[in-house]
Amino acid sequence: MKFGVVVFPGSNCDHDAFHVLSSVLGQPTEWVWHQSTQVNHLDAIVLPGGFSYGDYLRTGALASHSPVLGAVKKFAERGGLVLGICNGFQILLEAGLLPGAMLRNRRLKFLCRFVHLRVETTDTPFTTVCQPGQVLKMPIAHMDGNYFAGEATLRELERNHQIAFRYATPAGEVVDDAEANPNGALANIAGICNRERNVLGLMPHPDRSSEALMGSTDGLAIFQSLVQSLITH
């Protein structure tokens, strides 16, 4: 089993994802440089958080055109597992690997704080160890996490159970207020997967919530699900 963590210029959370995979979970993990196209030896790829290319253009827009993304697209088409965290999610949207787009947070400010997510589906390789409706505590840290999609897309996401996580209260109620859904995401969407269920993006940071010392271990469920899915395959 081998994990790859992509390094774009401006990736900041590359180390965080690498640390959880290699040090916390003890999985073989390697860096993938943004100009590389060699990903076929990997079992799963993580697009980490950060500010790829400074995000001076739309978040994720430049990274979606980098050489490694071409390889990641082919990797995903062949069924490889791809996890996009925060900026990684934004890149997956820009690259068309996931539907929808990100708007600026509803209060127009960068927001770094803990949120609660309700697990909406356990039928993805990223959520297999979760319970349906389980509430996970993870931090967000972004300026553009206000998920948006057209009505038809939203209907399709719901019909196909592609919405993996919704922002919720600690008790798991999905309510659209600034406390529970701080960035104002459409239908409280915090994370989605593709129809084939092998590509998943989420704005909150499981990489920052996988050790007790960091204030939560709930994010570990995402990485453990990945490992388990790869073992059973």
């Binding site: 959370c13 180390h15 400010k109 927001l111 770094c112 704080r113 931090p139 840290a141 050790e211 010392l213």
Partner: peptide, 13 residues
């Protein structure tokens, strides 16, 4: 402080 990323690189205890 919510406008500052105070957790990145996972060292903030």
């Amino acid at each position: 402080y919510q406008q500052y990323d105070h957790m990145v690189r996972t060292n903030t205890v």
